[in-house]
Amino acid sequence: MEDVQKQSKARKTIKASKLSEKKKDMISGYLYVAPFFIVFGIIGLYPALFSIVLAFNEWNGLGDMQFVGLSNFTVVLQDPLFWKSLYNTVIIGLMGTAPQLIVGIVLAYFLNLAVIRFTNFFRVTIFMPYITSMVAVALVFGVFFSSNETALANYVIGLFGVDPVSWKTSEWGAKIAIALMVFWRWVGYNTIIYLAGLQSISKDLYEAATIDGANKLEQFIYITIPLLKPFIILTVFMSTVGALQLFAEPTVFLGSSAFSRDEAMTVVMYLYRDAFNLGSFGTASATAVLLLIIIIGAAAINTWLTSGIGSKKKRGV
């Protein structure tokens, strides 16, 4: 009887030690990830929650907050400049991001071909604009799209009989220049993502398709594009979010006059102007909430549309 009691006590101590070891492992795991969550909570989660609360209050950044309900949203939605900034954001986003996704796939396809020489050099060259300083990019494009008649952009379009354009002050001139800046800066980033996706596709599929008589175009349409679908969804999602948050390119390109004209004012620029130029943090936060809703809706729609790439609908079912 005593032996049985000793064995049961030994088993209990072993179980208790195992539980204590699991608790120690669990605690140590939480301690390892705790710094990330603490920093995220301070600089990420708290400002986001505070912005949502601020959207329902009137505050100039110094005094006490005053609850105003939905008045800030009403002011923003009734402001023609907000709708103009949303229109500019969508137009510049479409002109700057849609072409770069298509060109990125084509460039990645050619860079993945074995017959292309110096592929590493071309990959680095294409990726260079992404890591280039935004100030340097603005200086280059500022010279290229100068309003002078002798500027490089005006010289190029002059070869086709087009009159010189005042790129920084005209309605479409500013949009085109900023869209080209966005395209130039981000096309290499998407190309590298697509290139990684292409390298994950087995070459046996292309060899089998060649044996079956499929040409390069058919292989690209029926093999490459469907198998790149996860990467296409990723780039479309990221491009949609980035396009709707466009701020650095138009601000740096237009300079000090960026917030005083509406030719290329984006939603984030409108938000920034309300908060830091006009001192209306309530309407700025309301704009941020509206922008969040727009981003979620646009990203969901684009993801849903791109998820159908390469899928075939079943007929007669």
Rank of each mutant, 00 (worst) to 15 (best):
V182T: 08
K168H: 14
S147E: 14
P164D: 14
V165L: 10
A153S: 14
S166Y: 12
A151F: 10
G213A: 04
G173P: 01
G197R: 02
Y189K: 02
V165E: 09
G213V: 14
T210F: 05
A177H: 08
E149R: 09
A208I: 12
S200T: 06
F220N: 00
N190F: 08
D163M: 10
S200L: 01
F145M: 10
L152G: 07
G188K: 01
T169H: 05
S200K: 01
N148K: 12
V162N: 03
L152V: 15
A136Q: 05
I193V: 13
A179H: 01
G173R: 07
L139Q: 13
V140D: 09
E149K: 10
V162M: 11
I193M: 00
W186L: 04
G158F: 03
L198A: 07
F144A: 13
K203W: 02
A196Q: 01
Y130V: 06
G188N: 09
L139K: 09
T169L: 10
T169I: 14
G158N: 11
L180S: 15
T210D: 10
N215V: 05
V165T: 15
L139F: 15
I176F: 11
S170E: 15
I157C: 07
Q199K: 06
K203D: 11
G213F: 05
Q219V: 05
V143W: 13
L152M: 15
T191S: 08
Y130G: 00
W184T: 12
K175D: 12
G188C: 06
K216E: 14
N215W: 03
W186D: 12
L159G: 15
K168E: 13
A174I: 12
L217G: 06
S147L: 10
L180V: 11
L139I: 15
T210W: 08
F144W: 13
K203Y: 06
V187A: 06
V137M: 13
L195V: 00
L159R: 11
A153M: 10
S202V: 05
V162T: 08
A209N: 03
E218T: 11
D163H: 11
T169R: 04
A196E: 04
T132I: 07
Q199P: 02
F144K: 04
G158D: 10
Y130M: 11
L195C: 07
F145I: 10
V187P: 02
P129Q: 08
D163K: 14
L195R: 03
E171V: 08
L205P: 00
D212V: 13
Y130P: 00
V162R: 03
G161E: 07
G213D: 06
P164K: 08
N190A: 04
G161I: 10
G173K: 05
I192L: 13
V182I: 05
T210N: 04
Y155D: 12
P164N: 12
I192F: 06
Q199H: 01
W167G: 05
N190E: 04
S133C: 12
V135W: 11
L195H: 02
I176Y: 04
S147D: 15
A151R: 03
I178Q: 07
K168R: 14
V140G: 02
I211D: 00
Q199F: 00
V135N: 09
L159V: 09
S133W: 03
S202Y: 00
E149W: 06
Y130E: 07
I211E: 00
S200C: 01
Q219I: 02
F144R: 05
R185G: 10
E218H: 09
S166D: 14
K168M: 15
I131W: 02
